[in-house]
Design a protein around this nucleic acid. Structure first.
Length: 550
DNA sequence: GCCGTTTTCGGCCCGACTGTTTTCAGTCG
């Protein structure tokens, strides 16, 4: 599967086009790159069928480029461009305030190719002499080089949400503040977050800005205007705040929730019906036809309401136009939690404590699934599960998949457990091992299927084959809700849903508190277009037991 | 470079803020 390579090369071409100032070719290549990146099939197969030009944003020219990449592994155009501008684009562009036009200027005037070159020339005060530059920009570049070097780019959603909520709560306490909403990728539920976007309506914007720029959490004020400010937080990420009037809050929220590509698509739609969409509303001529609510704006564009988690321009706008959006699974649909650990293995709470808190969270039943190798006295394990009264408890097990595709415990012994989750806990040959595990009769769920951990290199798995195999074997794939796993991820959930493969949204909790993590899995499933019917643990216990025994 | 029931040519999302300008380009979201 070369989709990633193709997308990477097309994106790189776009970088150079942007540097050269060719705004529209830049857009064309970016769009094509995106199409390939999010394509739910192998680009090589599409090419083999001669169907490249049917993909959105790919015409005769780029189709040819893609074929060249597929057959040679590289692209002559890109080699030419990178010889023309032999600069370390990634590093230079990562400096806040330095864009492609500045990179071009820096290279042509001062021969700057790397971050180190940039730093040296800035220290020698050569930057300030360039056209359009000055002392302030030079100083800013110097400051932001440091930042670019130390910058952790994106953080797990679960780490950022509490911080955003704290800021929101502080704003809500201010007098004259009417509404506060966290927008951006947090509201869309993306697995990682780059910055925090907050929208406010208030009678006194100035007072809001005063508070915002002087909060305890603020390290530095980056930008401060009357209606828009940006601060750098002590935690190392930026937070944007915008103030709007109440009557345009819907269009503003829509706009600042994004994604960028989603917004472009909406504006395109507005234009095609002779309207104009901005954060200040949907206009026909000078008349504002909508803006107070998101639903109102979408309706005026001929679209049904699109949940924030879906707003990625991956087909949801077209589906909304046809009124064919899925009815997404919600946290309230979750009735059981099928993957958690207790003191019997590496959990830190007892079965009773886990059960008790699960019950507090409203679960109707749970499966305790301690690691097989820890359970040396199965009878004691079963008895402990049976003793619990306040909630139905299944005595399950999580069993590791070995390198030869066998399980660490013989099938015969697994048959005694109510539920068997098979998972991989060490690298190597993942696809074949997963497919082999599904053939073992007692296995009902594959746990954290790709084994990825956010921030570490992505393991190599042929996810399409895995999902296909699971659908065929009648085995469910887990959406592991551990905020550092989120595995399956959103696009994989979509693939599973499309292929009729059941998913199970589980906490994989190793402590009581971690049972709450299931909400991150629900968000991920929603981003994957999952309805309640696609999710195993939205069934009641009797329905679930029936599914197990089928 | 792509795309089309308003176009096969002429469009391509739009606004806030900053710094360096003396009317605007660049960057960001």
């Amino acid at each position: 599967m070369k989709n990633h390579l193709v997308a990477h090369i097309l994106n790189r071409v776009a970088d150079y086009m942007e540097l050269a100032g060719d705004e529209f070719r830049t857009k064309a290549y970016r769009r094509a790159a995106r199409t390939v990146e999010f394509l739910n099939e192998d680009i090589e197969e599409v090419a083999a069928r001669g169907r490249l030009q049917e993909l959105p944003g790919i015409g005769r020219n780029i189709a040819g480029k893609i074929e060249e990449i597929l057959s040679t592994g590289s692209l002559q155009l890109l080699e030419r461009l990178s010889e023309e501008y032999p600069v370390d684009l990634d590093s230079l562009l990562s400096v806040e305030g330095v864009g492609p036009r500045t990179v071009k200027l820096l290279y042509e005037e001062l021969g700057i190719k790397t971050l180190a070159d940039l730093e040296e020339q800035a220290r020698r005060h050569r930057i300030r002499r360039l056209r359009g530059m000055g002392e302030k920009r030079e100083a800013m570049i110097l400051r932001n080089i440091e930042l670019a070097r130390s910058r952790i780019s994106r953080r797990p959603l679960a780490y950022v949400v509490p911080l955003a909520s704290r800021i929101k709560a502080g704003l809500l306490e201010l007098e004259g503040v009417q509404r506060v909403e966290v927008a951006g990728s947090i509201r869309r539920g993306r697995e990682t977050v780059g910055d925090i976007d907050i929208l406010v309506t208030a009678t006194d914007p100035e007072a809001v800005m005063d508070h915002f720029t002087s909060m305890d959490e603020v390290e530095e004020v980056v930008v401060r205007g009357p209606r828009k400010s940006t601060v750098r937080l002590r935690e190392g990420l930026d937070c944007d705040l915008r103030v709007f009037d109440d009557e345009v809050f819907g269009s503003a929220l829509l706009y600042f929730t994004g994604s960028w590509e989603f917004n472009v698509e909406l504006r395109r739609r507005a234009i095609s019906s002779s309207m104009k969409l901005s954060e200040y509303g949907l206009f026909r001529g000078d008349e504002r036809v909508a803006g107070r609510t998101e639903a109102g704006v979408l309706e005026a564009l001929g679209l049904s309401y699109i949940e924030p988690e879906l707003r990625e321009n991956r087909g949801e706008v077209e589906a909304a136009a046809r009124d064919e959006l899925p009815e997404l699974v919600t946290p309230l649909d979750i009735r059981g939690d099928l993957h958690m650990h207790s003191l019997f293995s590496d959990g830190i709470d007892s079965m009773e404590q886990m059960a008790e808190y699960a019950s507090v969270l409203g679960r109707e039943y749970i499966a305790i699934t301690d690691h097989a190798r820890y359970i040396d006295d199965p009878d004691a394990y079963f008895r402990a599960a049976e003793r619990i009264e306040e909630i139905d408890v299944l005595a399950g097990v999580e069993v590791s998949i070995l390198h030869d595709g066998n399980l660490e415990v013989p099938d015969g012994a697994l048959k005694n457990f109510d539920l068997v989750i098979a998972s991989i806990h060490d690298p190597g040959n993942l696809t074949e091992r997963l497919l082999a595990a599904m053939d073992h009769d007692p296995v009902s769920i594959i746990g954290h299927p790709t084994g990825r951990v956010l921030g570490s290199p992505e393991p190599v798995v042929d996810i399409e084959r895995v999902i296909e195999g699971a659908a065929e074997a009648g085995v469910a794939l887990e959406v592991n809700s551990n905020p550092l796993r989120i595995d399956l991820r959103d696009t994989h959930v979509k693939m599973a849903v499309d292929m009729g493969c059941k998913i199970a949204i589980n906490s994989d909790a190793h402590s009581r508190g971690a049972l709450e993590n299931i909400s991150w899995g629900v968000i991920t499933a929603r981003r994957g277009w999952a309805e309640a019917g696609d999710v195993l643990n939205t069934m009641g216990l009797r329905g679930f037991m029936k599914w197990l025994r089928r």
